[in-house]
Nucleic acid binder design. Structure first.
Lengths: 200, 200
DNA sequence: CAGTAGTGTGAATCCGGATTCACACCGCGC
DNA sequence: GCGCGGTGTGAATCCGGATTCACACTACTG
């Protein structure tokens, strides 16, 4: 078995974890090989015993985090039974998670990353937006929203959420706002944007 | 007069122009000192006769482009006389400009840039969102939209526009959508998000 | 015409970080 | 004990750009 394909060695796992922690603490920009290795308590070279490159390591980190995110959204959707309720649950879940870990969210959404990692990010965003689009379509079918281009609506919803919660602008990061109230505002905005009749 | 402060030399202007052109053609990532100098028809070192660093050069480029963008938005706002109409005009103007020059828009909005340049980008986004927020407030005062947190609403509108038109997701870049229809959808979405009663 | 300020040149240099590699150390089967 | 694969080490190396610098060339000025 080649070293680049091995899985589940303790050191390997520690590197994966360390990488995520460094990103959470200092963003992708602060995540040098040296920083990661140090935090994992190993030498620089050791990283290359388990990953062909720094980029590949991060591809895996991003995949993990994104999968977790999608899973959380999927689970959240189960808590409601009508499409609009699901949409709302997904949005709120995303918002809570982003607020709980702003730097990670920023890294996932907007921070400059390596091209290889960028590809994973895109993939994730597509998947996520795809889910949202599906819910929008369902809402339309159920008469909870008027007919519209679900793909664009979904992109707009995701974009709005990103900007408000984790975007480079991030009013919240600016600290001038109450998170809970902001989420409430965002919910209303999204519900109305779709043309849903009224209160959830 | 120190070289770092001079203004309006022909070569200097050519460098500024070349820098913008390179970004438009290859994004910020492709804008190396060598590429810019070559396009301007001068040697690498010449750049440093007119700018203290590559970052400073780009700060100026971004400033120029952003000022132009804000100016366009401001002008667009004048074409309507009610707040909601102004908002709509600003949105459409932004959309058209972004579609006319996708790579520049992407660079301005989402592409990885140098920290010094990033600061300018932020500044610009704040200004832009600030304008939008002001219009939202006006719309509320005029009874064209229900009371709401204008800052958050503005951020959401800007985020939605960015994502749909120039975001990393960019459905349009994917090529699967008709730009005109997309803008139309976006308009509707934004109008409704604010809770405006109906058609423009 | 010497002196000097401003500008242009581009090869050499510098720099931050990723990547490599020669050298251990360990545990295993023989 | 010996060979060997797997793993860890960290100093040396490599690399892609940005930045510098010693050397012109030009246009003034006295």
């Amino acid at each position: 078995m080649s070293a680049t394909t091995d899985s589940g060695s303790a050191t390997r796992d520690r590197l994966l974890l360390a990488a995520r922690e460094v990103v959470e603490a200092h963003g992708y920009g602060g995540a040098s090989v040296a920083a990661i290795a140090t935090r994992a308590g190993v030498a620089n070279g050791t990283l290359y015993r388990h990953f062909p490159s720094k980029a590949e390591l991060f591809v895996e980190v991003f995949r993990d985090v994104c999968d977790r995110e999608i899973a959380a959204a999927t689970k959240a959707a189960l808590t409601a039974d009508d499409p609009l309720g699901k949409l709302d649950a997904v949005l709120v879940t995303f918002a809570r998670r982003a607020l709980a870990n702003p730097l990670l969210a920023w890294a996932l959404i907007a921070e400059p990353v390596d091209p290889a990692v960028e590809r994973v990010r895109l993939e994730y965003r597509r998947t996520y937006t795809g889910h949202v689009a599906r819910l929008v379509r369902a809402a339309i079918r159920h008469g909870q929203a008027p007919p519209q281009d679900a793909a664009i609506a979904a992109a707009a919803l995701v974009g709005a959420g990103n900007e408000v919660l984790a975007g480079p602008l991030s009013p919240l990061a600016g600290g001038a706002h109450d998170p809970v109230a902001a989420i409430e505002t965002l919910r209303t905005l999204c519900r109305r944007a779709l043309g849903a009749s009224d209160g959830v």
